[in-house]
Structures are given as structure tokens and as C-alpha cells.
Design a protein around this nucleic acid. Sequence first.
DNA 1: GATATTTCAATCATCATACAAAAGCAATTG
DNA 2: CAATTGCTTTTGTATGATGATTGAAATATC
Lengths: 246, 246
Amino acid sequence: MDEAGNTVVRRPRVQKNVTRAIAADICADIFSAGDFLPTENDLCDRYGVSRTVIRESLKILESKGLVRGRSRVGTVVCRKDEWNILDQQVLEWIGPRIFEFDLLNCILEARRAIEPAAAELAAERATVQEIADVERAWLEMRDAEGDIERFTKADVAFHTSLLKASHNQVFLQLSSIIQVALEFSLHASNEVVDRRDEAVDIHRQLVEALRMRDTAAARNCSLQLLSLAARDLAVAVKKHQPQASS
Amino acid sequence: MDEAGNTVVRRPRVQKNVTRAIAADICADIFSAGDFLPTENDLCDRYGVSRTVIRESLKILESKGLVRGRSRVGTVVCRKDEWNILDQQVLEWIGPRIFEFDLLNCILEARRAIEPAAAELAAERATVQEIADVERAWLEMRDAEGDIERFTKADVAFHTSLLKASHNQVFLQLSSIIQVALEFSLHASNEVVDRRDEAVDIHRQLVEALRMRDTAAARNCSLQLLSLAARDLAVAVKKHQPQASS
DNA sequence: GATATTTCAATCATCATACAAAAGCAATTG
DNA sequence: CAATTGCTTTTGTATGATGATTGAAATATC
């Protein structure tokens, strides 16, 4: 931060940081939807970089739907429902503010539609190698014990591998939102260890279903996992909205 | 095209065109996955614009996963499975080459997972206004008669409105891929008019289901539409791969 | 006074140039 | 032969200038 309270970045490899900084300020509603961003020159002063960097950052933000540059008029901030929320980078920029977006519920609904279908396809089409990848992720989950970082990472790897094994490019692209969902839900339910043991076991059954090419079982396991995820999400949301207690 | 056979663009509002041109050349495998792009200065010559424009174009392409810039080394073209294929712009760049991507099948599978779920949610949550929007699109489909452009546009509007009515941001974002699927499938099955009448009728039933808040009927209608879409897709693929006849 | 036209300032879009920093390669040297 | 050093290439950043276009203010016209 500089004396004006703005996020300032250092010189050498500054592009990514500036982009992130502007995105963060947009997420923080310092620049609200519908507003015009300051002029390019003002943004230069604000973030302490040249117009080159500012313009390239704006181009990136524009390509992801956060802003829209109107020729010779200015750059307006887009409404949040215009953002490419399926984009990994956008999700990273949003970060913990995802709780303000009512996104986690949408993601859970989407997972309910997508993951059981992907599990079925994976049971049909997964190669031996891909099943092994899924199982390795499961082993990592099982051995993570109390290490929640490690567990989350393994869980993400499990679901990503599963989507990969579905051999469907669209499903695979959606791993970014599932990753986000897992990261924010699991951190919330870290104290409930029993539940995690249950989850590990269902994951194991899912690997088994892949081996057996049992599409119905695979779908069923996926649905069970999503029921657990729903409970975890409820906990996570309650934690992040303590003002909503009656 | 200039004397060297490269796509050249004129000066005034050149950014979008250059980006599209580079993307097109990548899609056409003029720059293949794993290859390094020419240096920025060479790209300037190739496309006849300044480095500013080239760099901003590369930034956009990078933000969508088509290329990856390695500092002080060069820009490499990414594998196609790294591209953000859920991005509207990327899909536009791919254009008719989508048949080479094995994407339409993936999209159909994804639609089977997503649209019935979205239809259910829409039946629960659509506002009166949103149902009216869906119906307006249906009317437009019905009145399109032989005008296939108009029919396609209305069909896209119908499905987009439906996703909007599901009040799920994730589903709504996926309207881009559904749009692409509709555009390429419908143009292929334009001679089969009976089938289109059948489709119009099922669309009508879906509107009715929304009115009645009948989630099961909505899901069922959606599934029926996807069966039709599957048949249309088969026709479209056969048309675009005439060499695959045994 | 209201409306249409013109002018003008603001701002983005592009260009050209310069320099810094770093990665890769080659030459040099122990 | 290996390790260091230095050079070249290429990207990253900065800066200033010019063109083009939009929106609004100023002016002219009715």
C-alpha cells in the first residue's frame, strides 16, 4: 500500500500483480458495476506503472468480462453476472469474496448435474492409467490424516482426475469451479473428522465402481459425495455469515 | 491476404482483427501446439501492426489459454485441451473448425447433464417475466417458418432464456457452448422440416411446464429436445465428414 | 426559445522508440 | 573438460506523439 492507500507493485514483473490489484479493487467494489474506471493516465498514477502495463491489464480484464472498454469514452465495470466465472483466474481474483456472490450454491447445483454424469462416463471410458490416477488421489486423501491442506489438494486431484477420465472436454473445463467449491467447503468442515472418514470411504467405492465399469454405482457414489458436500457447504456458509443468526 | 499469404488488417480499429487473425492462424495449425510463435517483432511485420497491438493480442490469447508467454524466451502455443473452450470468444475463433475438435459430442453430453437440471430449476424459480421471455422466443421459433437464420436465433434465445430462468450463474455461463451447438446442428438439419415442427411443439410443452411449475415435465421436455438434438448432430457430423463412409 | 449543426476537448487506439532485465548461448579461462 | 563470464536476443516496461472518435458544449438557424 502507498500513502494513498492504493495497492502498489514493484517494477520487474509487474503485469500480473497490477491485473490482480485492479481485479481486487473491482471485487472490493472500490470500482462498482456501472461505474467508469479512472482514465488510463489516472490508473497509471494509482498503481504506479506505465500505460503499457495498465492497458494490457485492462485487456485481460476485458477478455474475462470484468470490464468493457468503450472506445474513446472510458472503461466501465461490468455487472458480476457478466463475468466469466468459469475462468480459473477470475475465481482466484474473487477469492474468499465468493461468499458474497451466491456462487457456491450455484456451483453445488451445477456439480449435482455434472459430476454424476461425468462419473458414469468415466466408468465407461477411463483407461487403466486414468483409474490409477484417481486411485492415487484417493490414497493421498486416506493418508492425509489431519493435514487439511494435503487432504484438500488430494480431493481436488481426485475430482479433476475423474473429470479427465470422463473424456469430455466440457466437463474437464469445469474442474476449476469444482476446485473452488472444494477448497472453500473443506476448510469450513475441518473439525468434523468422522464425516471425512465417511467421505474417504465413498471415494474408495467410486474408484471400485470405475474398476468394475459399473456406471450406476459410479453415479450413485458421486451423488453421495455431493450430499456430503451439501452439508459441508451449509456449515461453511453459516460460518461466513454469522450476522444471519436470529 | 498480402503477398506473403498472411492475414493482414488495416489500421483504424485493428486490435480485435489482429487477435482474431492470430487465433485463426493457431486454429489452422499454422502455429501448432508446442511451437514457439515468431518473436514479437516478427509478428509485427507479419500482421502489419505495432508491437503494442501484438502484445495486447497475445495477452488476450494467453488469458484464454491459447498460448503461454515465457518471459524473455518466447510465446508457445498451448495444446487444444488447455484452451478455455467455454469462452464465447474462443468458440467464435474456432468457428467451423469445431468439427475437428470432437467438441460437439462433448457439448451434447454436457447438455444432457445440464439442461434438464436447469429446466427443473427454471420450473421452480422462473419469474413471470422470465417465462414470458421464454415464450416470446418460442413464438419467434414458431413464426420463423423457413427462415433458418431467424429460427436458429430464436432457438438460441429460447435456451438462453431458460438458463437465465434457472437463476444459476454457472448454467447461464454455459449458454455460450449451447449456442454454438445449436448453430452448427440446426444448419445441418435444415431440410427436415417435419422434425422442426416436432421440436417447436416440444418447446411449447416446455413453456407450459414452466407455467405449471411442473419440474418433472420440464425435465422430460428438455430430454426430448436433446434427443432431437442428438439426431441433428449425427446428420451434421456426417455432412462434415463425408470421408468416413465405409 | 427550441432545435439542429458545428466545434472542441477529452480519451482511447495505435505507433515508434528507448532502455532494462533476464534467459540462452558461446566464448573464454582455469 | 567444466565453470564462469560476457554477449545476443527477446521480452517487459516506460514515454511521448499522433490519429480517431465520442460526447458535450458552443454556435448558428429557424
